[in-house]
Design a protein around this nucleic acid. Structure first.
Lengths: 209, 209
DNA sequence: ACCAAAACTTGACCCGGGGTACAGTACCTT
DNA sequence: AAGGTACTGTACCCCGGGTCAAGTTTTGGT
């Protein structure tokens, strides 16, 4: 019996989420049917509705899970960057480089804020989902902004930019990059756009030789 | 009879498109029903299917109309910019400023590439819609890239950036800005992000005093 | 070993919305 | 008088989301 434990860690609910994530990333929310998900997981329709009140609750759970994973990902990158350099500017530049490298490595397009993008799209989803996404994005703004404040204290910015806007820009470039990558079917774009953003940050803060 | 002519310029087909555009912008594609559109326009379901084979053909027509309007908008801005300054760099910077101002003026969020966002979302739509969007975005890349090549010829870039990526970045910032604006419910973000992009372009090309 | 809760299954059913099919009509143009 | 355009009306199919009630298996804790 004990040999069942490790596998049973992954519940059918998790499996539903994973299946939904893949399908939604591939085809979009509307094109993903509940039928399809349950046949993949191997349960019945009632089983689905046992776990989720409706389809939008699934999306909410998906978003929650995704946000947690994403937060962990970024935190990991920052931690690694910190070990490599503890100057605030260089830490951030290393973080951006690491992020860019990770993005290059992704086989298909970054799952990232596609879910965000998918969420804001449909009024079908209740307010709570929208707020979840908004809070997450505002959280990133705050976090990056704090870092820029630190950086600006040591490196006087060479042009007058609003540091909150600059913080937002990373989100913007990521989301926009995902859209362009997906539309044009060139997954390299996303990473290169993050690289460009990094150049912008450099040109603002890195002092001239 | 002649007094009917001017009003009849706007066909029911156009009215359907406009109603669909507003509804989709507001609630998303899936949440917009045909029923809803025809009651607003005042025709029957059969009337709808007389104009469009199915719902996705409506989206295609919408995209086509939108792309034309957008192209005209940008062309207008470039024309105005050219009359104000015929130096390639300053023309472009003026264009960006005008674009930013227009975006500030928008009451609700920019209709812009939301349609793009809506398109990449759904496998429901046939390939042709996807290609329409992709071609349009690649068109902008080409157009902006050509301008940057001109600019770079006169103003040696101070950092090494790929001009195609830089061209893409305007699209990216616009699309990403729309998403962030919508999610966080702050329509100012979009314009400010375009402003930031403008600063980036300046920092690359504008020579130092 | 036993019990309760969790995690389902079965199966029947409703409904809204996309979509089809087709016959008919009103008007406008040539 | 004919033909096209822009519809209306009716009737109908199907899929997918969602509900309901009642029963069954799995699992974890004491």
């Amino acid at each position: 019996m004990s040999f069942l434990k490790p596998r049973s860690e992954e519940t059918n609910r998790d499996r539903l989420l994973t299946a939904a994530e893949l399908a939604i990333l591939d085809k979009g929310f509307a094109a993903t049917s509940i039928e399809e998900l349950i046949t993949e997981v191997g349960i019945t329709k009632s089983g689905f509705f046992y776990h989720f009140r409706d389809k939008s609750e699934l999306v909410k759970a998906l978003l929650e899970r995704h946000l947690a994973v994403e937060a962990q990902w970024f935190e990991g990158l920052f931690a690694r960057a910190r070990t490599l350099d503890d100057d605030p500017l260089h830490e951030f530049l290393i973080f951006l480089r690491l992020l860019q490298e990770d993005m290059e490595r992704l086989t298909d397009v970054h799952p990232g804020c596609i879910i965000t993008a998918c969420c804001f799209q449909e009024r079908l989803f209740d307010r709570s989902i929208h707020e979840l996404a908004a809070d997450s994005l505002l959280g990133w703004r705050q976090q990056f902004h704090a870092k820029f404040v630190n950086i600006a204290a040591r490196y006087p910015p060479r042009i007058d930019v609003d540091l909150e806007d600059l913080a937002d820009m990373l989100t913007v470039v990521t989301d926009g990059g995902i859209i362009l990558s997906k539309t044009v079917r060139d997954k390299g774009i996303l990473a290169r756009q993050v690289g460009l953003y990094r150049e912008f940050v450099k040109s603002i803060f890195v002092p001239m030789e």
